[in-house]
Amino acid sequence: MPLPQPDDLTSLVLRTDFGDEGAWDAVRAALDAAGEYPLATYVSELRFADVGVQALMAEEAAADEDDQIVYMFLADAATMKDPGHPLLAVDLSDEPGRTFRVPARWFPDISANLSIANMDFAEFADAADGSGTFRGFDEG
């Protein structure tokens, strides 16, 4: 079964942690509040409970080319527990399996640029700090 498709000009946010419904609501609220326009297609399906990056890559690789997506964001246990709600960004195309964390406040910038192919995944991943988290581009 192919991964869900995001709505036009949005990014797929896939829930993988189902331990706290309130935390999921908080993640969605934080992402929605971070941007002026809706930038996420939220998917909360139990079949993705605790799924890992490797399993998602395998599922995506098995999909027809027309059904494949380029990247996604996971709302995993770390996302749910951290007050900044850092999603796990996952590259499914150029460097499959490459990841970095993105706090909710930076999600609109990344989602908008990736959805219109203005920038590519690696540009954001390369700008992640030592903890593997994107916190904006250093203007310094």
Rank of each mutant, 00 (worst) to 15 (best):
T79C: 15
F73N: 07
V51Y: 02
S44F: 01
P38R: 10
L46Y: 05
D64V: 04
E59K: 02
P38C: 02
V70T: 14
A62I: 08
Q68M: 13
Q68R: 15
L46K: 10
D50T: 08
L39G: 12
A30I: 07
L46G: 13
A34D: 07
M80R: 06
A75V: 02
G19A: 15
Y71N: 14
V53E: 13
E65A: 14
D17L: 05
S44Q: 12
A23D: 10
R47G: 00
E59G: 13
Y71G: 08
E59N: 11
A34G: 04
V27I: 14
V27M: 06
M57S: 06
F73C: 13
G35Y: 03
A61I: 09
D64P: 10
E36C: 01
D67T: 04
V43F: 00
G52A: 10
V27R: 00
A23N: 05
A30R: 05
A29R: 11
E45R: 13
A77M: 02
L56K: 00
V51I: 15
S44K: 04
S44W: 07
Y42P: 00
D67Y: 03
R47F: 01
L31E: 05
G19M: 09
D82G: 04
G22V: 06
R28G: 01
A29T: 15
D76Q: 03
A40K: 01
V70P: 02
A26F: 04
L39V: 12
Y71E: 15
E59Q: 14
A26E: 05
D17C: 13
M80S: 15
T41V: 00
T79K: 10
D17T: 02
F48M: 00
E36N: 09
E21V: 07
A30C: 06
G35S: 11
E60V: 02
E65H: 09
A58Q: 12
D76C: 02
A33G: 06
M57G: 08
P83I: 05
G19T: 15
D67Q: 11
L56V: 08
D32P: 03
T41N: 00
G52C: 06
A78G: 09
M72F: 08
G35H: 03
D20S: 07
M72T: 11
T41W: 01
Y71L: 05
R28D: 01
D17N: 11
Q68P: 06
L39F: 12
F48K: 01
W24G: 00
D32V: 12
L74D: 01
I69E: 07
D82Q: 09
G22F: 03
P83G: 12
V27P: 00
G35L: 02
L46E: 14
E60G: 03
E45Y: 00
A34E: 07
V53H: 12
S44N: 12
D20L: 02
G22I: 07
Y42A: 00
F48P: 00
A77S: 14
A77C: 05
Y42M: 03
D32E: 15
